[in-house]
């Protein structure tokens, strides 16, 4: 399940383990990330996704396994000698330096000629649409502007891979949704490999070519967003990524996504009879919670012709097409 399309893997993570005292933060993870790919590490807080990224940047050393970047073993290489750049969750802009000094910071250190630095800073400022803010201090920037300066600073030295730690977590919802698409477009245009760490499934689905869903230091599943959503490998992935109706099925589970369920006020063959417990109107869709034999089932319908005339307490019959069901082994 790769989208590499003949490109060579840029990053190879082979059986990497990291322990902090008694806690195993990352437990034998193997992954590869292709050149030019937008890859997302997705999982709840404490699943080890940030630790894995920090090992790639060189801020933590693995206790086991190895990390290859462009075929070269990164073991023992300090952060400043790695072709990685990191965009920090707090942005970590240097408060004593102006916007342009922040962006130029990595250039001088990485051997750019003095004459090339100025034009490169301007190029980066126009890339993130912050022309003219050269002399501002970080304290004089809005949250969205600071986020873009952090992005420009990380991209300026021309890293092989950009590591983004919860890049949109500090933005408000509307700006976050716009920025998801902007980041995606920027990555396509530059062709730089992006690795983003996030706990937000929408963010991962919208932006990434492939998602690795993590759980307690291990990889639960890797694949393109559509594959992971439509064909989750486990109940954990099914429930973490989107909403899920799960039915006991032999030793495992049968998954039906709420938007693949249909709801009707009249019985039909094979339909499950229940009572509408709750109707939640989201504008673009409506979510019905239907109690069937004491079990709450979720049904999500697009409001194409307006919401269906159900109210809490109404009788309803829910059903799904056999091909909409996915059987999970665990």
């Amino acid at each position: 399940m790769t989208t590499s399309g003949g490109k060579s893997p840029l990053v190879r993570i082979e059986g990497v383990t990291k322990r902090f005292g008694e806690v195993t933060a990352v437990d034998g993870v193997s992954l590869h990330i292709d050149e030019g790919e937008f890859f997302a590490l997705l999982g709840p807080s404490g699943c080890g996704k940030t630790t894995l990224m920090r090992m790639l940047a060189g801020f933590e050393a693995p206790d086991g396994g190895r990390i290859l970047l462009n075929g070269q073993d990164m073991a023992g290489l300090p952060p400043h000698q790695r072709p990685t750049s990191m965009m920090f969750q707090s942005y970590a802009l240097f408060p004593h330096l102006s916007v342009e000094q922040n962006i130029a910071f990595g250039l001088a250190r990485q051997g750019w000629a003095r004459a090339a630095i100025g034009p490169r800073v301007e190029e980066m400022l126009s890339l993130v649409r912050l022309e003219g803010l050269n002399r501002r201090k970080p304290s004089q920037l809005s949250g969205g502007q600071a986020q873009r300066v952090a992005l420009a600073r990380a991209l300026a030295p021309g890293p092989r891979i950009l590591l983004l730690d919860e890049p949109l977590a500090a933005l408000d919802r509307k700006l976050r949704e716009e920025t998801q698409l902007e980041l995606r477009a920027l990555q396509r245009r530059l062709g730089v490999t992006f690795l983003v760490v996030t706990h937000d499934q929408d963010e991962a689905m919208v932006m990434a070519d492939r998602i690795a869903v993590m759980r307690a230091g291990t990889i639960a599943q890797v694949g393109p967003p559509k594959a992971v959503y439509e064909r989750p490998a486990s109940r954990y992935v099914a429930e973490f990524l989107g909403e899920a109706n799960l039915f006991e099925h032999g030793a495992g589970w049968r998954l039906v996504r709420p938007e693949k369920m249909s709801i009707s006020p009249v019985p039909s063959p094979g339909a499950l009879q229940g009572d509408v417990a709750e109707v939640a109107y989201f504008g673009d869709r409506t979510r019905y919670i239907v109690e069937v034999d004491g079990k709450a089932l979720l049904v999500s319908r697009a409001n194409v012709g307006g919401p269906l005339p159900f109210q809490a307490g109404d009788a309803a019959w829910v059903t799904y097409a056999p091909e909409a069901a996915v059987d999970l082994a665990s």
């Binding site: 400043h80 920090f88 240097f94």
Partner: peptide
């Protein structure tokens, strides 16, 4: 994370100290 950012952008530990920790 300011020190980590400096390290990430190409500073040795000593350079990060003189360019970030000390001025701040």
């Amino acid at each position: 994370s300011l020190i980590e950012a400096a390290r990430d952008l190409g500073c040795t530990a000593t350079q990060a100290f003189w360019r970030v920790t000390f001025p701040l």
